[in-house]
Design a protein around this nucleic acid. Structure first.
Lengths: 265, 265
DNA sequence: CGAAGTCTTGACAAGACTCAAACTGGGTGG
DNA sequence: CCACCCAGTTTGAGTCTTGTCAAGACTTCG
């Protein structure tokens, strides 16, 4: 179920630990700050698909960096309805809450087998205070989260069921591959079930099924057996209409000063 | 239409300029940092109801602090549909975007006559780098925004039309008055039209009208002539089910170290 | 007084949800 | 190797919520 793994087992896309200079820690260089961050890690965790990472109402304390696998953040209502707020992909940070909150406002769950890097929130706060570049990247990540969440808000509030599903598929294809534009026939591994898509789009699983069928019959995309095939990128993008800036946020982990294009990733 | 006003005309609830120790600048104390912030202001602006503050696609550059009046942030689709992302109340900050964005992803509009405090974004970045307490509050505000947006996302995705309208009304009553809990008969000035509520909840104006009528007939609340009367706070809260933490975010501008309760506001 | 914007209502249409059932594929245990 | 089970997917029929269209009433303001 849950296992601790040695630090050496980390993959290379932890924003805290590696992926320099792209991740959070890139701002710390190779010096003292980076060593501090590395030493602050509470440890790594391996979790099985389906396992909760934290629950709604848990006391707040740690930040998480997803090293491998997929995670979703979701908010549950008392009567069982739940909204998936965001899908977390490798290299992304999650688990932060405004200071002063007594408990987590949302839960998180592994969608695949995952590996995580765990850092106490107060250590991050401390590093932020002492390393401005580190703080800047942290702020950038918050602003990015905000931006993506607002985009979802517009999608749920204004788009039709078909558009919402298309929007989510395009976003996840681009975010998971960091590639744009897409070509006809591109395939992406996507560990999503239709009930998950339903919780993310505010639809019922049955209706998601119908929308996916329609997208397939219209030769726009085909989601099956955990893989998405983009059949007609042009029409897909036309349905979604992502801005240039939005695509940039989809293809990046963090702002990197001086680097302005995706080619570096 | 637009007018510049002398610095002396500021009211006391600008997070940059005053409202100390509660606003952003509170962390700067009375010393050098505070003077720097005050001097960094690009100036103040008065705008008439309905005026745009910035448009979607405008170049990014300034941060805004609302001194008086109401503002909404909204994101528009090409075909005219629009989603209201957030209502901004006096004392709140808006206009930030992730570094690297070329243009604003959303627009903002004055819902009443307003007064604004304008600060160049790069000056804020600079102050963040040099004053950690200032940076903490800035981060806190971002996290708060994020939290509120996620709450709206859950509302749009999971709640019925009636619940969404009730949710918005409760939130705005509490946020605008900074008072909780509510008592039967409490009245709140609220410069909202039904089309605005529709854009915020993802419904049509006509359906908003139906929902408001039902809430009125059920003696839960009454929104009329720009004022909301809460008739039955108990049932209203039961419909919305806000957590303790959420209410705390509704009643506060900023984290203030050492102060833990609303009584200070 | 007229005009514009907002609110209200009714009748109808459409999109999305509910319920029920059959089908698929992968894993488990006999 | 097969039977079974399970979660996920697919489909159909019927219902209900919400949206659309149209028109009238009420405010506010010039």
């Amino acid at each position: 179920m849950t296992a601790d793994i040695p630090i050496t087992a980390y993959k290379m896309n932890c924003a805290f630990c590696s992926a320099r200079p792209l991740g959070l820690c890139g701002a710390l260089g190779d010096g003292e700050g980076f060593r501090e961050l590395r030493d602050a890690r509470r440890g790594a965790r391996l979790l099985d698909s389906g396992a909760p990472i934290y629950r709604q109402g848990d006391r707040h304390g740690d930040l998480y960096n997803l090293v491998s696998g997929w995670v979703c953040l979701h908010q549950d209502l008392e009567d069982g309805r739940r909204q998936i707020l965001r899908f977390i992909l490798p290299g992304e940070l999650f688990g932060q809450e405004p200071a002063g909150m007594t408990s987590m406002s949302h839960a998180s769950q592994a969608l695949t087998n995952i590996s995580l890097c765990v850092i106490p929130a107060e250590r991050v706060t401390d590093l932020r205070a002492r390393y401005p570049g580190f703080s800047d990247r942290f702020v950038w990540m918050l602003e990015r989260d905000n931006h993506l969440t607002m985009d979802h808000l517009t999608s749920l509030g204004q788009r039709s069921a078909l558009e919402r599903v298309a929007h989510l598929m395009l976003e996840l294809a681009v975010r998971s591959s960091r590639r744009y534009p897409l070509a006809p026939g591109d395939r992406f591994k996507m560990p999503l079930t239709q009930p998950l898509i339903a919780d993310a789009t505010g639809l019922t699983p049955i209706h998601v099924n119908r929308m996916l069928r329609r997208l397939r019959e219209d030769h726009i995309l085909d989601l099956r057996n955990g893989a998405l095939t983009v059949l007609d990128p042009g029409r897909l993008e036309a349905m979604v209409g992502p801005s240039e800036d939005l695509v940039r946020l989809w293809t990046r982990y963090a702002i990197v000063e001086g680097l302005d294009h995706d080619e570096h990733y």
